[in-house]
Amino acid sequence: MKTQEELTEIVRDHFSDMGEAATLYVQVYESSLESLVGGVIFEDGRHYTFVYENEDLVYE
């Protein structure tokens, strides 16, 4: 099982292909040891929320 830090790095790496991230945040109260819930805000103003669970990243 991966730590939240490892899950955060996986998510950060995925979003790095989409541009320069200004902020990546984790909603600790919705996350667990198995999943990471949060969002990313890019330098150009785009904002996505995400759920990373079971090696699957879903974002909108």
Rank of each mutant, 00 (worst) to 15 (best):
M1R: 06
M1A: 11
M1G: 11
M1C: 15
M1D: 06
M1L: 13
M1I: 12
M1T: 12
M1K: 13
K2V: 07
K2Q: 07
K2P: 03
K2Y: 07
T3H: 03
T3S: 09
T3V: 03
T3G: 05
T3K: 04
T3M: 03
T3Y: 05
Q4L: 15
Q4M: 12
Q4N: 04
Q4E: 10
Q4S: 04
Q4R: 09
Q4W: 11
Q4D: 04
E5R: 06
E5T: 07
E5D: 09
E5I: 08
E5S: 07
E5C: 12
E5L: 08
E5N: 07
E5W: 09
E6W: 09
E6Y: 08
E6A: 07
E6P: 01
E6F: 08
E6K: 06
E6D: 07
E6N: 05
E6I: 08
L7I: 10
L7R: 01
L7H: 02
L7M: 07
T8W: 12
T8Y: 10
T8L: 15
T8C: 15
T8M: 15
T8N: 04
T8I: 15
T8D: 04
T8A: 10
T8G: 03
E9A: 13
E9I: 10
E9M: 12
E9C: 12
I10Q: 04
I10V: 06
I10H: 05
I10E: 05
I10F: 08
V11Y: 03
V11K: 00
V11W: 04
V11F: 05
V11R: 00
V11E: 03
R12W: 12
R12Q: 06
R12A: 07
R12Y: 07
R12H: 05
R12G: 04
R12P: 02
R12V: 05
R12D: 02
D13G: 12
D13N: 14
D13Y: 10
D13F: 12
D13H: 13
D13R: 14
D13V: 12
D13E: 14
D13C: 14
D13T: 13
D13S: 14
H14E: 02
H14M: 14
H14P: 02
H14N: 04
H14R: 11
H14C: 15
F15N: 01
F15R: 01
F15Y: 03
F15P: 02
F15D: 01
S16R: 12
S16W: 08
S16K: 14
S16V: 07
S16L: 12
S16T: 08
D17V: 14
D17Y: 14
D17P: 10
D17E: 13
D17T: 15
D17S: 15
D17A: 15
M18T: 07
M18R: 06
M18Y: 09
M18I: 08
M18Q: 05
M18D: 03
M18C: 13
G19C: 10
G19L: 05
E20A: 12
E20I: 14
E20R: 06
A21R: 08
A21Y: 13
A21S: 11
A21C: 15
A21W: 13
A21D: 10
A21T: 13
A21N: 13
A22H: 13
A22I: 14
A22W: 13
A22K: 12
T23L: 13
T23K: 09
T23P: 06
T23W: 13
T23A: 08
L24P: 02
L24M: 08
L24A: 03
L24S: 02
L24K: 01
L24H: 02
Y25I: 09
Y25D: 05
Y25G: 03
Y25N: 04
Y25V: 08
Y25A: 03
Y25F: 05
Y25W: 08
Y25H: 06
V26H: 01
V26D: 03
V26E: 03
V26F: 07
V26L: 05
V26W: 06
Q27Y: 14
Q27A: 10
Q27F: 13
Q27M: 13
Q27L: 15
Q27T: 15
Q27D: 13
V28G: 09
V28W: 14
V28F: 14
V28D: 07
V28H: 13
Y29K: 01
Y29V: 04
Y29A: 04
Y29I: 05
Y29Q: 04
Y29G: 05
E30Q: 09
E30R: 03
E30D: 14
E30W: 12
E30H: 11
S31M: 10
S31Q: 12
S31H: 08
S31W: 11
S31E: 12
S31C: 10
S31L: 07
S32F: 09
S32D: 10
S32L: 09
S32Y: 09
S32K: 10
S32T: 11
S32V: 09
S32P: 04
L33H: 10
L33C: 13
L33M: 11
L33V: 09
L33Y: 10
L33N: 13
L33A: 11
E34S: 14
E34A: 12
E34H: 09
E34R: 07
E34F: 06
E34V: 09
E34G: 15
S35V: 14
S35A: 08
S35I: 15
S35F: 14
S35K: 15
S35H: 10
S35R: 15
L36H: 01
L36R: 00
L36Q: 01
L36T: 04
L36E: 00
L36K: 00
L36N: 02
L36F: 08
V37Y: 08
V37N: 03
V37W: 10
V37I: 12
V37K: 12
V37F: 07
V37Q: 08
G38S: 01
G38V: 09
G38W: 08
G38A: 05
G38Y: 03
G38I: 13
G39K: 08
G39M: 14
G39C: 15
G39F: 15
G39P: 00
G39A: 11
V40A: 04
V40P: 00
V40E: 01
I41A: 02
I41M: 07
I41T: 06
I41P: 00
F42H: 00
F42I: 01
F42C: 07
F42P: 00
F42V: 01
F42N: 00
E43H: 09
E43P: 11
E43T: 12
D44G: 02
D44S: 01
D44H: 00
D44Y: 05
D44F: 10
D44W: 09
G45M: 03
G45W: 06
G45R: 00
G45A: 01
G45E: 03
R46T: 09
R46S: 06
R46G: 03
R46F: 06
R46A: 04
R46C: 09
R46Q: 05
R46Y: 03
H47M: 06
H47G: 03
H47N: 03
H47E: 06
H47V: 08
H47I: 07
H47Y: 08
H47R: 04
H47P: 00
H47D: 01
Y48K: 00
Y48Q: 00
Y48M: 04
Y48R: 00
Y48A: 00
Y48G: 01
T49Y: 11
T49C: 14
T49G: 02
T49F: 10
F50L: 03
F50A: 01
F50P: 00
V51N: 03
V51A: 06
V51D: 00
V51Y: 09
V51W: 10
V51H: 09
V51C: 08
V51I: 12
V51L: 07
V51E: 02
V51S: 07
Y52R: 00
Y52W: 07
Y52Q: 00
Y52T: 02
E53N: 08
E53F: 11
E53Y: 10
E53T: 12
E53V: 12
E53K: 13
E53S: 13
E53W: 11
N54H: 09
N54T: 04
N54P: 02
N54R: 07
N54Q: 07
N54Y: 08
E55H: 14
E55M: 10
E55T: 07
D56K: 15
D56C: 15
D56V: 15
L57D: 02
L57E: 02
L57R: 01
L57Y: 03
L57A: 02
L57I: 09
L57Q: 02
L57C: 10
L57S: 02
V58M: 09
V58Y: 11
V58I: 10
V58P: 01
V58Q: 11
V58L: 10
V58N: 07
V58T: 13
Y59H: 04
Y59V: 12
Y59S: 03
Y59A: 03
Y59K: 01
Y59Q: 02
Y59T: 05
E60S: 11
E60F: 13
E60P: 04
E60Q: 13
E60I: 13
E60M: 11
E60R: 08
